[in-house]
Design a protein around this nucleic acid. Structure first.
Lengths: 193, 193
DNA sequence: GTAGCCCATGACACGTCGTGCCATCAGGAG
DNA sequence: CTCCTGATGGCACGACGTGTCATGGGCTAC
């Protein structure tokens, strides 16, 4: 059965339960063969309630990214003064890489495995990356950077971070993400001369 | 009525007619308020036939991009020898920019206007950019580049090209795309130090 | 020319997705 | 105790996308 048995009716973690149910079902039987009513039932909720917490079937995989804009603002606000724009951005990713990823490597891997299994999910992942770039771009503009430079630089940062994340997830488990991030940046610099 | 009146039943341009009908309807009443049956009817076809030519409602806006992988192979095969990988990629985009865009600026603008109006379309555009990067990555790997370098470099190229396309579409109409492309690359190089 | 194959299209049924609308019900404020 | 707030249940509905079979025009073979 679901997780709904022992908890009060208005358990405050409905979104979390739905996310867990979805991750399980997607891993068990694939994304395409899982229906929203199945997810809702396993979480002890109804279909209608699922769509109150998530915009669509794909969105449940990106619950964790909802706080990204807030995190971005906080991290970039903590950056030391006097950094060049690109160092400011990379400092932000470095801080996030040191802080919140190495402990969750297997969870991130499992999630990525599902996303890679279906083009619709890959599509949504790209939109989320774009949204993250947009948030960074906003901070850069607030710091006085010209709009086109901010757009270019935030996309550059997300590109490096995503590539580093891929390397990190495929490589040995004891390699810290922030190291991979630095190496990826150096590799791209070398490639682009 | 539609375009179906004067032409034979098996007109070979069903996809083109559907694309034209969709562009008109999206411009007239918006993407969200247009249904697939409406598009099919204006093209003189049925809904079922629409879905034989396009995977879904969004796909009709990306008909022109189907030839991209072929174009990429052709353009990169024509590149002079001895280029560094990054110059090879940028040479490809430069060739495309000189060749096929400046004459279609208004058409590209109209299409972009529609895509920017709906997040689902923006999402699909990102997937198409990713697919283009994948095609370039494949060519680079064939040329002997290491896989991670190829992925990084193809994404870099697409990033620069997309940013240049944005600048070009927003700027004065007599500015050739290949110039904007060069300037965008220089701007990013300057920003990333 | 006509018999027969090929294949794009038409037509229908169906499951799933996502939303609008109203009813229900727990808990806090007074 | 009553009222109010807010999350959830339940239902109906339109749109999306696919499986399946029928239709009919164009083409080749003979």
């Amino acid at each position: 059965m679901g997780y709904g048995g022992a908890m009060g009716r208005w358990a405050p973690d409905a979104a979390i339960r739905l996310e867990r149910a979805a991750l399980e079902l997607f891993a068990e039987q694939g994304y395409a063969d899982t229906t929203v009513p199945q997810i809702a039932a396993r979480a002890g909720l109804t279909t209608r309630t699922y769509f109150r917490h998530f915009a669509d079937k794909r969105d449940v995989l990106f619950l964790r990214e909802r706080e990204f804009p807030t995190v971005v603002s906080a991290v970039l606000a903590d950056a030391p003064d006097g950094l060049t724009p690109v160092d400011l951005v990379m400092h932000g990713f470095d801080a996030v890489a040191r802080d919140g990823f190495d402990a969750w490597r297997e969870a991130v891997r499992a999630r990525r495995r599902i996303i890679r299994s279906d083009a619709h999910l890959r599509e949504r992942e790209l939109l989320k990356s774009s949204a993250l770039a947009g948030a960074i771009e906003g901070v850069l503009v607030e710091h006085g950077l010209e709009a086109r430079d901010a757009a270019l630089l935030s996309s550059f940062g997300v590109l490096v971070f995503d590539a580093a994340l891929d390397d990190w997830l495929e490589g040995p488990s004891d390699r810290p993400l922030h190291e991979v991030l630095r190496e990826t940046r150096e590799r791209l610099d070398r490639l682009t001369g």
